[in-house]
Design a protein around this nucleic acid. Structure first.
Length: 114
DNA sequence: AGCTTGACCGACC
DNA sequence: TGGTCGGCCAAGC
């Protein structure tokens, strides 16, 4: 069985990142930096890379930027999940709300990891 | 070995 | 409220 040199297993660090992502409850989020800090290893950028490459199988929309800006390129997909899960958003109230993608209300949506 | 590139962050203005 | 800047750290070239 030595032929199976194919990488059917993800790097250890990536596995841990995905594990944390899966623990985030619906309606809540963690920032990349939060996840890194929670793991006690790596940094926001490492978490970001892990999610970008392998995050497809987990609730990727629950791992977000610390400033609450929605994932570039997937704003609408993410937004649908947020509305469905009731994740706190900062909608823009005024007339200028037209064509404006909301941001997450990080104060309320942030999850500390239990 | 050096430089650029990211699903980033916090401080500052 | 929004933009810049420096720091961050691994990967790629």
């Amino acid at each position: 069985m030595r032929e199976g040199v194919v990488v059917d297993e993800l790097p250890d660090y990536v596995e841990r990142v995905l594990e944390v992502a899966e623990r985030i409850p619906a309606g809540r989020v963690m920032s990349y930096g939060d996840v890194a800090e929670y793991l006690g290893e790596g940094g926001p950028r490492q978490v970001g890379r892990a999610m970008a490459l392998y995050g497809g199988g987990v609730p990727w929309w629950r791992v977000v930027r610390a400033d609450g800006v929605l994932l570039a390129g997937s704003e609408l997909r993410a937004l649908e999940h947020y509305r469905e899960e009731g994740t706190p958003l900062r909608e823009r109230g005024g007339p200028a709300a037209r064509d404006h993608v909301p941001r997450l209300d990080m104060r309320r949506a942030r999850w500390d990891g239990g």
